[in-house]
Structure formats: C-alpha cells, structure tokens
Amino acid sequence: NYVNKGDFADYSISVAQAGTYDITYYIGTGVAGGQVDFLLFEGGSWVNKTQKAVPNVGWDNFQPLAGGSVYLSAGTHQLRLYGGGTNDWQWNLDRLVLTAN
C-alpha cells in the first residue's frame, strides 16, 4: 500500500502453460500521475513489458484495471510491479490477476 514513485515489489510465479496472458490489476490511487509498470527478469536484467496509467478512483477503492498482455513461457518467472508514474505517491494494489487468453 501507498507505493511511492520508484517503489517496487518482486514476485516469483510458476506458469503451467506457455501463452499470452492478460494482466488485470485491482488497484486504486487518490492522485493523478500514478502508473504501474509490469517487468520481467529476462537475460539477466529487468525488461519493462507494459506500463499503465492508474486513474484516480480513491486509495482503497480497488477497481479492475486492464494492464495489457504479456507472453509467458512455461516455467518459473520473476516479475516486478514498479511505481513508474510522475507523482511521488503512486497507488495501492489489492491483487494482480494473469488470465490466459
């Protein structure tokens, strides 16, 4: 909660089946200028796959936000959610959902 500009959280996920996955954030912010970046650790560095502006809907009013899509191979991946917007305060996140499409 209360992610600041430049803050991040890293996750390890296991993907059973390779494919393209839609990203949905359940996220809220009380400011303008918030952005969530979805990065994957590939080839020894973090690669930014998608960026999504977070609309001002209130800090704990977690609304679904379509975050684009990403191709994931089967296996374990390291992902990072990063506060990449222009405001010092960014967003609160309830959950992230990856859905095969």
Score class of each variant (00 low, 15 high):
71 Y>F: 14
66 A>C: 03
34 G>K: 00
32 A>I: 08
93 L>P: 00
40 L>T: 12
98 L>D: 02
76 T>R: 07
64 P>C: 04
28 G>N: 00
30 G>S: 09
38 F>Y: 15
60 D>M: 14
53 A>D: 11
49 K>W: 11
59 W>P: 08
69 S>M: 02
80 R>Q: 05
65 L>N: 04
66 A>R: 13
60 D>K: 15
34 G>Y: 00
59 W>S: 10
62 F>S: 04
91 W>N: 01
93 L>C: 00
88 D>C: 01
94 D>L: 10
73 S>E: 13
55 P>Q: 06
81 L>T: 03
22 D>P: 02
37 D>A: 11
89 W>S: 12
88 D>P: 11
37 D>G: 04
79 L>T: 07
56 N>D: 15
32 A>H: 12
73 S>M: 11
45 S>Q: 14
37 D>K: 10
88 D>F: 04
91 W>A: 08
73 S>A: 15
52 K>A: 01
38 F>N: 01
79 L>A: 10
74 A>S: 14
98 L>I: 10
95 R>G: 10
59 W>Q: 07
29 T>K: 00
49 K>T: 14
86 T>G: 06
56 N>I: 07
85 G>C: 01
95 R>L: 08
53 A>V: 15
82 Y>N: 01
37 D>C: 04
41 F>V: 09
95 R>F: 10
23 I>E: 02
55 P>A: 07
72 L>F: 09
86 T>A: 05
82 Y>T: 01
45 S>W: 03
98 L>W: 05
30 G>R: 01
72 L>V: 08
41 F>M: 06
67 G>S: 09
45 S>D: 08
89 W>C: 12
80 R>H: 06
53 A>R: 06
57 V>R: 11
72 L>S: 07
46 W>D: 09
67 G>C: 11
74 A>P: 13
66 A>W: 10
95 R>V: 13
85 G>S: 05
75 G>V: 03
27 I>S: 11
47 V>D: 12
84 G>F: 09
33 G>C: 07
76 T>K: 11
83 G>P: 02
75 G>A: 06
68 G>Q: 14
77 H>Q: 03
94 D>M: 03
62 F>H: 14
59 W>K: 08
76 T>H: 07
22 D>W: 07
46 W>A: 04
23 I>V: 14
93 L>M: 04
34 G>E: 00
73 S>I: 08
26 Y>A: 06
78 Q>F: 13
71 Y>N: 12
70 V>P: 06
50 T>C: 10
89 W>N: 12
53 A>M: 11
98 L>M: 07
95 R>E: 08
69 S>K: 05
81 L>Q: 01
42 E>F: 04
26 Y>D: 06
98 L>C: 01
51 Q>W: 13
88 D>S: 13
41 F>Q: 10
36 V>I: 13
32 A>W: 12
70 V>I: 09
64 P>A: 03
57 V>K: 09
23 I>Y: 08
35 Q>A: 02
36 V>R: 03
84 G>S: 11
